[in-house]
């Protein structure tokens, strides 16, 4: 199969994720969309590794997974504490830091 197709898929996934981040209000969904975007990148990296015939892309994909795992830990913790204090999981409610 043509590896370029994987790239199209990755682009599609990334676009879906980005749209989700932008239009969804629920923090959990936004969070999942971010994960989706990360995975789209992973897919692209792996596809490129295959295309170029070296392992650099795959290694970076592993790094990304580690980072994504760390992000999930921190992110979920923030979401939980946010939900506790505000009783809502909407991103727009957390706007205290604005000037």
């Amino acid at each position: 199969m043509n590896p370029v197709n994987y790239l199209y898929l990755a682009a599609l996934l990334f676009a879906i994720g980005a749209t989700g981040v932008l239009i969804r209000r629920n923090v959990i969904v936004v969070f999942m969309c971010v994960e989706l975007m990360l995975n789209a990148c992973n897919l692209a990296f792996v596809a490129f590794a295959r295309l170029h015939g070296n392992l650099d892309g795959q290694i970076i994909a592993f790094f990304t997974m580690v980072v994504a795992a760390a992000e999930v830990v921190v992110g979920l913790a923030i979401i939980v504490s946010l939900f506790r204090s505000r009783h809502s999981a909407s991103v727009d409610d957390a706007s205290l830091m604005k000037l």
């Binding site: 980005a18 981040v21 932008l22 239009i23 209000r25 936004v30 991103v91 727009d92 957390a94 706007s95 205290l96 830091m97 604005k98 000037l99």
Partner: peptide
């Protein structure tokens, strides 16, 4: 310019994108 900082994470994301 300050009005740009409206506190909505999603609008920040738009500008980032």
């Amino acid at each position: 310019l300050r009005k740009l900082q409206n506190g909505f994470a999603r609008s920040y994301a738009v500008s980032m994108f």
